[in-house]
């Protein structure tokens, strides 16, 4: 299949990457898929389909620290507060009570990954 030509830099949307950590109840666990579903459902509930389309929001699926429950979300650079406030509305994943901590907001995935790598080495939580 023919690949779509990429837009020139000037026309591409500016994005931000938000690194986050899910702090959850001890002894309880949840799957990454549960989190993805919860994030989508919460944002769709709160902002609606049209609102979410403006966020240019997506979960970076290949960056997920299963043990430390850390991941990355990508969104439009002007909509970062909306995405973060939306994430804050998540208080449960299935039966597990959770709260979300924002670790880093950056324009490059590399910087966020670096921060997550540092956090992954921390032993205090």
């Amino acid at each position: 299949m023919k690949k779509l030509k990429v837009l020139p830099m000037s026309l591409r949307e500016k994005k931000r990457y938000v690194g986050f950590k899910v702090i959850h109840e001890k002894g309880e666990d949840f799957a990454h898929e549960d989190l993805i579903a919860a994030v989508w459902n919460t944002l769709l509930d709160f902002y609606g389909e049209y609102g979410v389309s403006n966020l240019s929001f997506q979960i970076v699926k290949n960056v997920w620290y299963e043990k430390k429950k850390m991941g990355v979300i990508r969104c439009k650079h002007t909509e970062v507060p909306k995405v973060i406030a939306g994430l804050g509305l998540i208080s449960r994943l299935g039966d597990t009570k959770v709260t979300i901590k924002i670790l880093k907001v950056s324009g490059t995935l590399k910087k966020v990954k670096e921060k997550l790598a540092i956090e992954a080495k921390r032993k205090d939580y």
Partner: peptide, 23 residues
């Protein structure tokens, strides 16, 4: 009313911007 309802400071600041406050 529970630790699971405590929110990251950035979440609260972002919530403020939704209410019409500047960052």
């Amino acid at each position: 009313i529970s630790v699971w309802e405590m929110k990251d400071p950035l979440v609260l600041a972002s919530f403020g911007t939704l209410l019409g406050m500047s960052i």
